[in-house]
């Protein structure tokens, strides 16, 4: 486990080392970004819509019962932007994109494509890992912004139309505006950036260390997803703790 962590840190360092050649890799980064956005945006919006709805449905009746119904908008919005949207989007990306990256790189490793790159003096980290990690690091925070907006709408729809909640649209959004600060949004975006690096590096590492043919590829895919999710949750706690002092930020 510690060897894996060490190798991933080395891979991250090597990937950062190729940053100066970003401009040369822009086309491949754009291709990866398009793939990630194309395959994840609809799913992310669906997930966020129902996350917001469920939050509203679970907490709304309790708050209304205690005469705190007007706080629903802020509660749903904060839960989404600081915690649920970054974590759930990262898990979604780990499942959809991380797994496919591990499979693709694993297959390239098994079928000697990566060896071929090296014999052509092409750095596989620059050619394969860098565009993927950068694309995820850009795409995930963008998905989190979408997830926040759609999730807030999901919460508002349930608040407005569910008979057990019945918090008006106006009350929901005025409380949301009064509660959520720019720093809360930034908090979620900072988290999602680090989660993205974790998913990218873990998935690429698993792909590049694949051994043993198709079965090995399957193992790498499973490990990429499981390790990513575990690390996301561990890192989530650490980042939440680190970002606590920033909570008294600007009003939204």
């Amino acid at each position: 486990m510690f060897q894996n962590l060490g190798e991933m840190l080395v891979l991250l360092g090597a990937t950062l080392g190729t940053l100066p050649r970003f401009w040369q890799e822009r086309r491949r980064v754009a291709e990866q970004l398009f793939d990630i956005g194309n395959s994840s945006l609809f799913m992310a919006c669906m997930l966020a819509l129902f996350m917001g709805g469920v939050l509203s449905l679970q907490t709304g009746p309790v708050l209304v019962q205690r005469g705190l119904g007007s706080s629903l908008g802020g509660l749903v919005a904060l839960a989404l932007c600081k915690e649920l949207a970054p974590v759930m989007m990262a898990v979604l990306i780990a499942g959809r994109i991380g797994s496919s990256m591990a499979a693709e790189l694993g297959s390239m490793q098994v079928y000697q494509e990566i060896d071929a790159l090296r014999t052509l003096n092409i750095n596989p980290i620059r050619y394969l890992v860098f565009p993927r990690v950068v694309a995820i690091a850009v795409a995930l925070p963008c998905l989190v912004v979408f997830a926040n907006l759609v999730g807030w709408m999901g919460g508002a729809l349930v608040a407005q139309f569910n008979a057990r909640v019945e918090v008006s649209w106006n009350a929901y959004f005025s409380n949301l505006r009064a509660t959520v600060e720019w720093m809360d949004l930034a908090n979620g975006l900072i988290k999602s950036f680090f989660f993205a690096i974790v998913v990218g590096v873990v998935s690429c590492h698993q792909g590049l260390t694949t051994r043993g043919g198709p079965r090995g590829i399957g193992r790498s895919v499973t490990k990429a997803v499981v390790n990513s999710i575990v690390l996301i949750l561990v890192l989530d706690y650490a980042l939440t703790r680190l970002l606590l002092p920033l909570d008294n930020g600007w009003q939204f």
Binding site: E104, Q112, E113, D115, A116
Partner: peptide, 25 residues
Amino acid sequence: IVFQSGGLLNSLTVAENIGLYLSEH
């Protein structure tokens, strides 16, 4: 080196594979 499996990049066309060294460098 010519690998036993060929080691061609499956995501690239044949022409892109052949020209890879020249284009990448």
